[in-house]
Design a protein around this nucleic acid. Sequence first.
DNA 1: AGATGGGTATTGGGTAACCAATATTTAAAA
DNA 2: TTTTAAATATTGGTTACCCAATACCCATCT
Lengths: 96, 96
Amino acid sequence: MKDEMKGFLSYLTLWNLRKQPMTGAELAKELEKRRGQKPSPGTIYPVLKELKEKGLISSDKEKRYSLTKKGEKEIIEACNHFCQIFYDVKEMKNCC
Amino acid sequence: MKDEMKGFLSYLTLWNLRKQPMTGAELAKELEKRRGQKPSPGTIYPVLKELKEKGLISSDKEKRYSLTKKGEKEIIEACNHFCQIFYDVKEMKNCC
DNA sequence: AGATGGGTATTGGGTAACCAATATTTAAAA
DNA sequence: TTTTAAATATTGGTTACCCAATACCCATCT
């Protein structure tokens, strides 16, 4: 099973920002908690840039990123998608 | 958010096979339920081939795939990984 | 036997996702 | 002001992932 679990980085980024704004460094720390490995700068910042260009997040003067209205809609939609794919996620929990 | 939710195909394949053996066609139907779109043959069969080569699944004469012992171990491990990444998946559920 | 159709499989290629390495900015210390 | 360090950002290239198109196999029907 290769390096599965890829491809969720921008999803996880929005998800992490949904409660409180964060800097890139703080985000990296959060992602390390989840994945067990800290993403490199070349991973995290392009994602932030892309999300910003799409209008899903914005940053203040302190480089602290937060969701825009559009980003809030997006994360809800993505959650729906996620929950459809993993509708039986509870069984996965029991797996652990 | 591009076409996120990619990259979990082999994970989902093992997950679907964990209870009863399935043919490629049955698997495709299952995946359609989850993702809303049926994966093309060029998607599903290379995955099955790869999983077989890795000894995670095996097939009988009727082309029905099932998990090997190794595959059973693998899906448990993958579940653990998944649950670590999405440790707050419950909140996602509430999102929907 | 030949034809038809559905499942199975392969091939080739395109793109998203990611990282290592490097550069730049920022801020605080000396 | 210069130095140092840490965060931020960019670039280039690699790989995983997936699909469309095509081919193959194997029933079942004619």
